[in-house]
């Protein structure tokens, strides 16, 4: 029971990270019907930028709490801004010229961009894994059990609290943006009917660009969380995390924001429990199989609308 509870906490933390990445997939797919294969690599870039800023600020575990929080906000904002620039530029240079081309062309281009980003970071930042000393320490013990095997404590670390809290805050902010602002309205309009939206005076290109920017910014947040939580990153983390986040987006119902978050949580939990109770080597197989199973049996996802075949 205690072990289960501990895994539940870990799963929710991991799920928050996947959920943040998944939002980028789901928004882009919702608006232009494209799987932005390079999105996982934007997450990776965000993570590297965060690492650079943290190193530049000389942030360590001995930094005082107030200063740490301030510094982390600075790291977060820088990573979000730079990842957004990557996202915007990629959309502008590589995807926009292909709009209206056959459907698979952008997907193949996105694969190319993914290869470019991975190798660019490998060249500029090195191929070796980057370890980061923990910055936030401490936590709370929720319950302890003492039996013949010794002591087992269920803990939630400050880091996990931070990840979950930041995710909730950002989700709220972005939901409000989608629901209340004119940008959000434009996005929803483009999702429904891009041609009609442009006839009504919505700047479709700009709306699509902003979608990429928002997705990239959230991916950068996830990148920072991932860096802080695991303490190691390399240029290849985007691929597997990307596939898992895409699975989360599909599971939640592609195009749906709460769906992406829910899907992220489910995938995070599945992965954690799989690793805890079955085998850690095959945890990626579990995630990939999950993707296949979801697409085959639940292609509309948990919160998505079923598609009616148009004849």
């Amino acid at each position: 029971m205690e072990y289960f509870l501990q895994q539940l906490i870990n799963g929710i933390t991991l799920g928050s990270i996947y959920g943040l990445i998944a939002i980028g997939y789901t928004m882009v797919y919702g608006i232009i019907g494209m799987i932005n294969f390079a999105h996982g690599d934007i997450f990776m870039v965000g993570s590297f930028v965060a690492l650079i800023v943290i190193t530049a600020l000389g942030l360590t575990i001995s930094t005082g709490l107030g200063l740490t929080i301030l510094a982390l906000i600075l790291v977060l904002v820088t990573a979000m801004v730079i990842a957004s620039v990557f996202g915007w530029t990629i959309e502008r240079m590589a995807y926009r010229p292909l709009r209206g081309s056959f459907r698979l062309a952008p997907l193949i281009t996105a694969i190319g961009i993914s290869i470019v980003l991975q190798n660019y970071i490998q060249i500029t930042q090195g191929a070796r894994v980057k370890p980061l000393q923990p910055i936030i320490s401490g936590g709370y013990t929720i319950m302890t059990r003492v039996d013949t095997n010794g002591e087992f404590a269920v803990q939630i670390s400050n880091m996990q609290i931070m990840i979950i809290v930041v995710t909730v805050i950002l989700m709220t902010i972005f939901s409000l943006i989608i629901a209340k602002t004119s940008l959000g309205r434009a996005q929803r309009a483009c999702e429904q009917d891009r041609k009609m939206a442009s006839l009504l005076g919505i700047n479709v290109d700009r709306t699509i660009s902003m979608t990429f920017v928002m997705g990239a910014a959230l991916a950068a947040v996830a990148g920072l969380m991932f860096l802080l939580y695991y303490g190691v990153i390399d240029f290849f983390i985007g691929f597997v995390a990307g596939v898992k986040a895409f699975t989360a987006a599909v599971l939640g119902g592609i195009g749906s924001l709460p769906g992406a978050m829910l899907g992220g949580l489910v995938i995070g939990l599945i992965e954690t429990f799989w690793s805890a109770y079955f085998s850690i080597e095959y945890k990626d197989v579990a995630a990939f199989s999950m993707l296949a199973i979801v697409l085959i049996f639940l292609p509309q996802g948990l919160l998505g609308k079923p598609e009616v075949e148009k004849v």
Binding site: M34, I35, R103, V243, Y282, V285, F288, L291, A292, I296
Partner: peptide, 28 residues
């Protein structure tokens, strides 16, 4: 058999997943 009724881009992602599954199995 199970995946071929999927739409173009979904099919692409699932085949990618299968490719990775086979590689991870060979690896482990």
């Amino acid at each position: 058999f199970p995946v071929l009724r999927l739409r173009g881009d979904y099919l692409a992602i699932v085949t990618l997943a299968f490719g990775e599954i086979i590689r991870v199995v060979l690896l482990n």
